[in-house]
Amino acid sequence: MRISKRIALAAAAALAVAMGGAQAQDMMKLKIGTEGAYPPFNSLEADGSLVGFDIDIAKALCEEMKADCEFVTQDWDGIIPALQAGKFDAIIASMSITEERMEKVDFTNKYYNTPPALAAPKDTDIAGVTKEDLAGKAVGVQGSTTHSNYAEATYSDSDVKLYPTADEYKLDINSGRVDAVVDDVIVLQDWLATDDGACCKIVGTITPVVEIHGPGAGIAIRKGEDELREKFNAAIDAIRANGKYKEINDKYFDFDAYGS
């Protein structure tokens, strides 16, 4: 019953689109998936709204593409399946472009690229970021990320713990369940500047490994939707060129997050 009703509705909607074709083309409707737990890139406020670099960039891109965008929050470990399942049309959530993910989704060009880093409590005895420095320690990372791939591949003598969101490893480094955490340097710096991050310091940045970390963060879309990808790419170039990117960049960072 429900499905047939939905098909009827969809058919009616399709008809409406066909009739008002010109109008619909002006305002492309897009659903953007994001995580909402990764400050300063994307996070939720107490009033339920989304804020952050990703969100501002997404809004700028949508404006550039003349698209009517709606944000959908989705847990990180289900974000790619949800894209494939059609719950939204693009992921703008600081997702690194990797070979593994490219088997399942397509990516636009990068829209930023910042290095990962390792943070630990201020009184830590961890001196560096190598495998030896972290032997026998518990390292917290967000699961299904390039950081977790890196940590699992590199820190094989450590107890690597995977968390569903960045907020959770932050809770656990504060309580002392993990001795160090690995994440994007921006994310860590942003957190260290808050009361909550006062516990910790950055031990050092990690040199990105191209096979693991990829060329940077891109926008993920379903495979084969080349037209949408090209639109996004053009929009990224456009906001880079017209100063909109710089405006957003400067709101959050004191350097160019786009990288070289």
Binding site: D77, I80, P81, E100, R101, E103, K104, G143, S144, L162
Partner: peptide, 11 residues
């Protein structure tokens, strides 16, 4: 299962 899924995105 979650871990494997996060690696492979294979249902």
């Amino acid at each position: 299962a979650r871990w494997v899924f996060s690696k492979t995105f294979d249902f």
